[in-house]
Design a binder for these strands. Structure first.
Length: 510
DNA sequence: AATTCTGACAACCGCTGCAAT
DNA sequence: TATTGCAGCGGTTGTCAGAAT
């Protein structure tokens, strides 16, 4: 941090760059790109002092700066603002960043708002660097105390038995030094234990898949997702950069840290004991710590990425693109068309409409709490069905064995829930960072993982040569998280069932 | 001494949300 | 209601300096 200060930004690098600034043609002249000169800074400062912030496009017009408004805004916000704090982050600030990130994820601007004098860019850079460092060291992103705080805070909240109507943007939650996660978030953590998806899959609105009938005849009648196609594509490309080499290339980090990973989870969240007390009726596997996790990164990632190597960041669930065909595809798993997969994954099922309306996606936690409240309410309605009759759920889905998870997934792990994301953030705090790089060639799975996962998951079919961690069925069968044998008692059944459902039947309908 | 790796930082790009029209 | 423009956000890239090999 001390290397280059904003004030002394006229370093050699900048100087060199200034010699040949790129220039972009604009309507009223060439727009300059690249580093700012002191003269430009002066002009901008003068302009803003005179006219105030905002109306950035006018800066170029009226001040003679050959910079686009965007660039001006950025320059001002990140470097010229008088209230900027220069220099390295203090330990307190660092602690705060960690807490805030656990709570907010990659909401840099919001984090910056909590750190006076710091910019989102600064925080982002700091975090990304830190993540990389930790990743190399194989350390958890979030220190144990943060995990503990999260746990404590959550338990307290739960004891209160009320939803904390807190808004992450609001001062009540943020101002306190005590780090808290709203109850609903932590409930997600607990209840989600029943799910064992890789982030890739976790972030897919699986409820949509299930409810909308991946296994049903409704499979073709989904609404089209509204997610931006470009984003989906871009991100999906990031997920598994080397599909031809198998998804493992993007998962090495995750793989190599699996043991430590589950151990940490157990330690930090006392999951095993908690889970025992909540033993899932269906013998569900333990919680995947991954959803929306910020914990692990591949080497190329710039920010908090989920555990599975190159998984994408903690975007709102629906923005996850790893829902594309490629992410699922293996030679042994017939796939739906790209469109249908997208649709399957991204379309909110009709029943969910209400929740989705509430779902703020990426908006504040207040809405999130409301949303979660709604879903919890729904869960109560559904719980009776769930425990007494696993096939009750909805419509055509009943024939799908995966339906056993259906309700709980929908209600508590609705990936559309904004809280799932935050919860994941917290959860991932205790996940280790793999030192391995996802783009390492010759990546190999750990033997124990390999053994389990490579078991053919579809009877009569040749086992895939490479594990497809994007496939929930594979994960189910893999004993992936190793959080206690109790979780995997039914795993072989699950594996077959889910495999049959999601693999064979994903496009042929259960 | 040369090369590679890593950290730090600045800046750009694309996208989204929102307000004005 | 649809369109447009703007501000802001988050992700990514590029560059340099210093450390490590």
């Amino acid at each position: 941090m001390s290397k280059m200060t904003n004030g002394g930004e006229d370093n050699k690098r900048s100087k060199n760059r200034r010699d040949s600034p790129s220039v972009e043609e604009a309507s009223n002249g060439p727009l300059k790109k690249g580093p700012w000169t002191a003269a430009e800074d002066a002009i901008l400062v003068e302009y803003v002092t005179k006219h105030g912030e905002g109306n950035w496009n006018a800066v170029q017009k009226h001040s003679g700066l050959s910079r686009c408004g965007k660039s001006c805004r950025l320059r001002w916000a990140n470097h010229l603002r008088p209230d900027l704090k220069k220099g390295a982050f203090t330990p307190e600030e660092e602690r705060r960043i960690i807490e805030l990130h656990a709570k907010m994820g990659n909401k840099w601007a919001r984090m910056a708002a909590e750190l006076p004098g710091r910019t989102d860019n600064e925080i982002k850079n700091y975090w990304n660097t830190r993540i990389k460092r930790l990743q190399r060291a194989g350390l958890p992103v979030y220190p144990p105390e943060v995990c503990q705080q999260v746990l404590n805070g959550s338990q307290e909240s739960q004891n209160m038995g009320t939803l904390q109507n807190t808004d992450a943007c609001g001062p009540d939650l943020i101002q306190s030094d005590h780090f808290e996660i709203p109850e609903v978030e932590f409930k997600n953590l607990e209840l989600n234990r029943g799910l064992i998806y890789s982030p890739t899959v976790l972030d897919i609105p699986t409820s949509s898949m299930l409810k909308s009938g991946v296994c049903s005849s409704h499979g073709s009648s989904f609404m089209l997702p509204t997610m931006h196609p470009h984003k989906r594509l871009r991100e999906s490309q990031t997920i598994f950069p080397s599909l031809d080499g198998g998804v493992g290339s993007g998962l090495s980090a995750f793989n190599q840290s699996t043991d430590y990973f589950s151990e940490k989870i157990t330690e930090s969240f006392d999951i095993s004991s908690q889970y025992d007390s909540h033993t899932n009726t269906f013998g569900q596997p333990p919680l995947c710590v991954l959803p929306g996790s910020h914990a692990l990164l591949n080497d190329n990632s710039s920010s908090s990425e989920p555990l599975c190597g190159a998984m994408k960041l903690e975007l709102p669930s629906l923005q996850y693109p790893e829902t594309q065909q490629d992410s699922w595809g293996t030679p042994n798993s017939p796939l739906p068309s790209l469109e249908s997969v997208d649709t399957l994954i991204l379309s909110p099922p009709a029943e969910q409409t209400q929740s989705d309306c509430l779902s703020p996606r990426s908006s504040g936690l207040l809405e999130a709490v409301l949303y979660e409240s709604q879903t919890l309410k729904n869960s109560k309605k559904c719980s009776g069905h769930q425990t007494s009759d696993t096939s009750v759920a909805t419509g055509d889905v009943e024939d799908c064995p995966f339906n056993t998870y259906n309700t709980e997934w929908e209600v508590h792990h609705d990936p559309n829930s904004p809280l799932g994301h935050s919860a994941a953030s917290v959860f991932s705090a205790c996940t280790p960072i793999s030192g391995s790089s996802s783009d390492e060639p010759g990546f190999e799975l750990k033997p124990e993982t390999t053994n389990q996962v490579s078991t053919p998951y579809i009877e009569g079919k040749e086992a895939p040569k490479q594990i497809d961690f994007t496939r929930p069925d594979v994960l189910l069968g893999s004993g992936w998280f190793g959080l206690g044998s109790g979780f995997v008692n039914n795993q072989s059944v699950r594996t077959d069932e889910v495999g049959a459902c999601l693999g064979d039947d994903i496009d042929s309908e259960c």
